[in-house]
């Protein structure tokens, strides 16, 4: 039996172990090569497929690179004003409590202009999922300093590195919301390695399950992400940089889990 024949025999429906999820539209992503947004979008779509929740899920897109998230994730979605995604999610969830509502926000959106909404949504314990993509920089506007930009990290507005005595400190908003009684599940994940991708997906699934069970409390997932274009690196370099520089400060793992659950 030739190698080619073996391969052809492998490519059957029953041997299919990974394909693009149904809940992801056919529109190709507009993101830069290597950007983590595509991975996280795909994971959300995979969880929606696996849980069969497409008809009950409503998403909220932010202002930032992922403003067009609604072009990719095939669920009803609302595009929020900059920073207000969690307030918009609150509005939806309050009038449609049986739907599964998530917001998808970047670091500028969630941790700078939208800090108030983020804190208060979490503090009210809105039964929604907030997905927070932290790449330490403003992507869409071209690489300016974000609230999560690391100390000494260069951006177009901190061209000599972030001087914390002038620009303040990188904000660990995830630890902040974990301290609030309104959150039930707070975790920090990453998607630059296969194992971490699996973990992030589990976190997304767990959050939707908690929401579906109508447990009270906000679920909050930070994904430490890369921004090859604005970090001015190749995608592979950017992931290496992420591992060596972002992760020591933004440590991965569950920060808060619901009572009795792990």
């Amino acid at each position: 039996m030739s190698e080619q024949t073996i391969i052809d025999e492998i490519k059957t429906e029953e041997n299919l172990v990974y394909k693009k999820p149904e809940a992801l539209k056919d529109t190709p992503f507009h993101y830069c090569p290597g950007c983590a947004h595509g991975v996280v979008h795909r994971l959300i779509a995979e969880v929606i497929d696996e849980m069969g929740i497409q008809s009950e899920t409503i998403g909220v897109a932010p202002v930032g690179c992922s403003v067009f998230a609604y072009n990719y994730i095939d669920v009803d979605m609302t595009e929020a004003a900059h920073g207000r995604a969690s307030a918009v999610a609150t509005g939806i969830k309050r009038v449609l409590p049986d739907r599964l509502v998530f917001s998808y926000q970047g670091d500028g959106d969630l941790a700078a202009i939208g800090t108030g909404e983020t804190i208060h949504t979490c503090n009210r314990g809105e039964n929604v999922l907030i997905i927070f993509i932290n790449n330490g920089i403003y992507g869409m506007t071209g690489g300016q300093m974000a609230p999560t930009t690391l100390e000494n990290m260069k951006s177009t507005t901190t061209p000599f590195g972030r001087d914390v005595s002038v620009m303040g400190y990188p904000l660990k908003i995830t630890e902040l919301v974990a301290a609030l009684p309104g959150t039930q599940y707070v975790t920090r994940q990453a998607v630059y390695k296969p194992g971490l991708v699996r973990k992030t997906k589990k976190a997304i699934r767990k959050s939707f399950e908690l929401q579906k069970e109508n447990k009270n409390g906000t679920c909050f997932i930070e994904v430490v992400a890369n921004c090859p274009s604005n970090w001015k690196m190749t995608p592979v370099e950017s992931n290496k940089w992420l591992e060596e520089n972002m992760l020591p400060f933004y440590q991965l793992g569950d920060i808060k889990t619901p009572n009795g659950r792990k």
Partner: peptide, 26 residues
Amino acid sequence: MTVLQAESEIASINMVYGAAGTGKKI
């Protein structure tokens, strides 16, 4: 009817935006 005191007028109007998108009277 749902009544929610928001943290600010900015949050209020954006809650209205989200909720009004569901076709309800907000």
